[in-house]
């Protein structure tokens, strides 16, 4: 995960987080399914709260409070993490970044939800039908209070591509460098 965002209030873990067996994949299939569902909900809530756009199977990710409960001295194993990420992808809440399946983009908001958010922002703030740059929308001075501020570059590129596909923007300068993207949001 990579984010500079500091949430105003700490994340409140659900009670199940303090239940030690929660950190071990259950052998009994029905219990395991329930457990995985609970994990998917928790990951989504956590990523929403902390604006996490990426998760990986790196060892470092297991140090994240989400996967390591220091008070219980329990943490998720790498294999279990793989299972959880797979479940997340299956629930359309994440997407493997590559075929190697080591990283995921976490879609705590789906691409179409992000698209709606951007269009709504443009309409509400006088940015509709004017040329904006990727940098301006993602890191500009006018968006610091927006949910999409400092959005992951790759996810941002996907959202812009989605908008372009839906013809809700006019692409003026396509670029692999998201900062140099130029487009007009049709309002």
């Amino acid at each position: 995960m990579s984010t500079n965002y500091a949430p105003p209030v700490p994340f409140e873990f659900p009670p199940i987080y303090s239940f030690p067996p929660f950190f071990t994949l259950q052998p009994h299939a029905p219990s395991r399914d329930k457990q995985v569902t609970a994990w998917v909900d928790l990951i989504r809530a956590y990523c929403t709260h902390h604006r996490v756009y990426r998760l990986s199977l790196n060892a470092s990710i297991l140090d994240l409070p989400l996967f390591r409960n220091a008070a219980l001295n329990r943490s998720v194993s790498r294999d279990m993490l793989h299972t959880l990420l797979t479940a997340l992808v299956k629930a359309d809440l994440a997407e493997w970044t590559s075929k190697s399946k080591t990283h995921v983009f976490v879609y705590w908001k789906s691409l179409s939800e992000w698209s709606d958010t951007l269009v709504a922002w443009a309409k509400d703030n006088g940015f509709a039908n004017t040329v904006v740059t990727g940098y301006e929308v993602r890191l500009g001075d006018y968006v610091t209070d927006q949910e999409f501020y400092a959005m992951d570059e790759a996810v941002f590129a996907k959202v812009v591509a989605h908008l372009d596909h839906q013809r809700r923007i006019v692409m003026i300068n396509p670029s692999s460098n998201v900062d140099e993207l130029g487009f007009k949001i049709i309002g």
């Binding site: 004017t130 040329v131 904006v132 740059t133 006019v170 003026i172 300068n173 130029g182």
Partner: peptide, 15 residues
Amino acid sequence: PKASAHDKAVFELKK
């Protein structure tokens, strides 16, 4: 819709 020359000019300025 196509990007006009004007749009491109504005984009260059904004860039």
